[in-house]
């Protein structure tokens, strides 16, 4: 399984899209928002937490279909399913690799982009913490969505339709923590809820995703 993890990371590096693509998308999105809503810094400050979280969500979504689709097309998924590692483990490892190539760079880049949006200085800490806690859930939920649509023609669009509603709780709690943190309120409850969602997704969704892949390969 460690081998699979390194292989996925290597593939992400070599194909060039791994780190760059999601980050570039995130940057463009954040740049576009002021054009849309106007340069008023107070307005930007008010919507910054939401924009950063929605941007992270969409950037994450962008690379999801690569989790399983490429392996399905070249037959690797068949071979992995017959290999002596459990398919649940394959899913978990691939979701983790997706997080490292997509989620983690977003976490690291978010403060710089927060600066562009005049994010409240008290909120930076919470921005990093919620993204760090929340983005693994995005990768694991996304892996589940990718597993449901693996092998379908035009699966990408359908996957967005399936995955985005599942992202709602993570988004709500994530943006809420930043908003409360910026206002100096207590953040324990939404933070705990978000951590709970991540823990639950990491623990349970690989089983659902593996079941879906088995059905799709059948």
């Amino acid at each position: 399984m460690i081998r699979l993890f390194w292989r996925d990371l290597t593939l992400a590096f070599r194909s060039g899209g791994g780190f760059g693509l999601g980050l570039g998308f995130f940057l463009i999105l954040v740049t576009l928002v002021p054009f849309g809503v106007g340069p008023n810094s107070e307005r930007l400050m008010a919507i910054a937490p939401g924009i950063l979280w929605v941007g992270a969500l969409l950037a994450c979504l962008l690379s999801l279909d690569r989790i399983f689709a490429l392996d399905f097309e070249d037959g690797s998924l068949d071979l992995l399913a017959t290999a002596p590692i459990p398919l649940e483990g394959v899913v978990a490892v691939k979701a983790l690799a997706h997080w490292i190539t997509t989620g983690l760079p977003l976490v690291l880049a978010a403060p710089a982009l927060g600066f562009l949006l005049h994010l409240d200085s008290a909120a930076y800490r919470w921005l990093i913490i919620t993204l760090l806690i929340g983005t693994p859930a995005l990768s694991f939920i996304g892996a589940f969505g990718a597993a449901l649509t693996v092998g379908l023609k035009r699966g990408g669009l359908l996957m967005s339709l399936l995955v985005l509603p599942l992202y709602i709780p993570t988004l709500i709690f994530g943006a809420e923590v930043i908003r409360r943190g910026a206002g100096g309120f207590l953040v324990a409850t939404p933070l705990a809820m978000q951590a709970g969602i991540t823990a639950g997704s990491v623990a349970l969704l690989p089983f659902a995703a593996a079941a879906a892949i088995r059905v799709a390969l059948r």
Partner: peptide, 18 residues
């Protein structure tokens, strides 16, 4: 999807209330 979706629908309901 229905199974997983039900869990997330409940979570969303709670989150939205919050």
């Amino acid at each position: 999807l229905c199974l997983v979706g039900s869990v997330f629908a409940l979570l969303s309901r709670y989150a939205v209330n919050f």
